[in-house]
Amino acid sequence: MFEPVSDTPMLTAENLRVHFPVKSGVFLRQTGAVKAVDGISLELGVGETLGLVGESGCGKSTLGKALVRLLEPTSGRIIFEGRDISHISQRVLRPMRRDFQMIFQDPGESLDGRMSVRSLIEEPFRIHGMGNRAERKKWVDDLLTTVGLSQAAAERYSFEFSGGQRQRIGIARALALKPKWLVCDEPVSALDVSVQSQILNLLVDLQKEFDLSYLFIAHDLSVVKHVSDRVAVMYLGKIVELAHSETIYRNPKHAYTKALLSAVPVADPKAKREKVLLEGDVPSPIDPPEGSAFGHRIDHPRYDETIGMDLSLREIEPGHWVAADPCCLEPEDWKKLA
């Protein structure tokens, strides 16, 4: 459905859904579902960074986990290098996992404190039965150098390191098997600004060096803009806008994107801007509004029209996709789509 970034995208998701059952009552019958990811289609090109932004609870992390198959999608397809991996078994999946890895938000929690840094970074090689002891030692030393840690770090434990250094260990682990693409789930949000810029620089350098693709999940829009080629804005399990990152920041079309952008505090006291303040919170994904989810939140007068309407993404300008939703578009933009 999207214009491909390269001729053959590395990864394609088609109408992906991840629903978590809600069980209640004595017999724990399923009484509903949390529609964390609700019909998402996207493509990721070789060497590309796709940024994914949205408020907490919108399903960003669930989407990331489903794409690397840490979760099994409820429906839809994930095609990686021409192969449908959406429902294949863990056994078949394991050798393929070399190609896609994940970097987690909190490196303190995602690293086992009882393992030395060497065994942490070596673990992927052991699991995949790669190399002998001497080879693995060399690989670990090389990885440490790649992520900017000294080789002496290998014999220490993760808790001896600061947040930024721990994130480097997490990145070294993710890079060990030379993956083709990575999900970076809020990789810098737990870090201080000065350390954050070190890690962002590292991620950008690694991408150039190894031709990596990233799905970069973050809630900090300035960070996302800095690293991304294209940006997808997610709201309540759906992508509402997707475009090249310059376009989405210069010329946002969807009301939610506009509100998100205007909420970002700008480090310039002279730039007093008019803010679009949103009322309320993201509605519950258990019982989402029938029509336009964002139209419902802002209590838009045209909300009733959107019930039963096809609100899927359409291309408003070349490469700029936005949900065809009368509640969330300027009248002239809506006319272009309708």
């Binding site: 954050q196 962002l200 620089n201 300035s222 690293v227 991304s228």
Partner: peptide, 17 residues
């Protein structure tokens, strides 16, 4: 002040650290 990316910094440029 320099190390924070803003909406105006050149994408994928090297941030001062």
């Amino acid at each position: 002040l320099r190390s924070i990316p803003t909406l105006d910094t050149v994408p994928k440029s090297v941030l001062p650290t």
